[in-house]
């Protein structure tokens, strides 16, 4: 079911790119109602729209039928956050969001794999943490950029997730009392992701009861613009092997940075073996 949901979302994105004539660099769409193609619970859908509508990165929205699906298009602008992150040199990878719908599908999959807590590392505007909370999972968001954390705090009243302004590599994860967590690593392997993931993996491995129980989600790319990894896995193969992880699921979903790319972002779900 989740697999088909993801495929339908990719199709919707392709159709959207074909018909969209606006100028936003980071537009995204959310269906207006539950359908066979997008069997998402109505209360969840309402929350996703609320998150999008109140999110200050969106400066415009309008209704549009995309293919056979009635949607709301949210037009976004993330330039000022990019400017802030490069000014302070605080970020390993500049903020570029996954789609809200993709975040929902990702967290749906994380829940179906049996994880109870989501830790969104390099969380940007906190959309993955938000979606995890919508799905009743315990949810933590860790972001180094203070401007983005301020933004998260403005959205945090819709559903409550824990938002921390911190360097994820130095963060004390034992303070969260995690039991079965899954970590979403923000950033492609080639865009600072490896260094971020390595640092967090090292921290989690030092907490003995989490070593074997933690799940990992890596955002990968098949784009020829980036150097491939000799062990594949969309740029993450070597890190996965070096850390005794095994991929358990792959899912392909739209993100802001693949808007005009033929291939979507490859999310690799991995576990310890």
């Amino acid at each position: 079911m989740i697999d088909q949901f993801a495929k339908n979302l990719v199709e919707l994105k392709k159709e959207f790119v074909r018909v969209y004539d606006g100028k936003s660099q980071t537009p995204e769409v959310i269906p207006t109602s539950k359908s066979e193609l997008f069997p998402i619970e109505e209360p969840h859908l309402e929350l996703l729209h609320e998150f999008a509508a109140k999110n200050p990165i969106h400066y415009n929205s309008f209704e549009k039928k995309i293919g056979s699906v009635d949607c709301i298009v949210y037009e976004g602008d993330i330039n000022k956050y990019w400017l802030n992150s490069i000014q302070h040199g605080s970020s390993k990878a500049p903020f570029s969001p996954t789609w809200i719908m993709s975040s929902y599908v990702n967290t749906l999959l994380a829940k179906s794999l049996g994880y109870s807590e989501v830790i969104d590392i390099g969380s940007g505007d906190g959309r993955i943490a938000f979606c995890a909370r919508v799905l009743d999972m315990a949810s933590y968001s860790i972001e180094i950029d203070d401007m983005l954390v301020d933004l998260q705090n403005r959205l945090n009243g819709i559903v409550d997730f824990y938002s921390y302004c911190s360097d994820a590599v130095l963060f004390d994860y034992s303070s969260l009392n995690l039991t079965k967590p899954i970590f979403f690593i923000g950033g492609l392997a080639q865009m600072g992701g490896i260094s971020l993931a390595s640092g967090v993996l090292k921290s989690i491995r030092s907490i003995s009861h989490l070593k074997k129980k933690s799940g990992w989600v890596f955002a990968g790319t098949l784009s020829p613009k980036y150097a491939p990894d000799p062990k594949n896995e969309a740029g993450w193969g070597t890190l996965i092997e070096d850390n005794d992880l095994k991929p358990v699921q792959h899912i392909s979903l739209p993100t802001a940075w693949t808007l005009h790319e033929p291939d979507e972002t490859q999310y690799i779900f991995a576990e310890s073996y």
């Binding site: 100028k23 660099q25 400066y59 037009e75 602008d77 330039n79 000022k80 400017l83």
Partner: peptide, 19 residues
């Protein structure tokens, strides 16, 4: 220039011009 223009609310047109 871009920092000084980032302080308040911007119109859709201004946002897209700044892009």
């Amino acid at each position: 220039k871009l920092q000084s223009g980032n302080s308040g609310e911007k119109s859709k047109e201004q946002t897209e011009l700044d892009t």
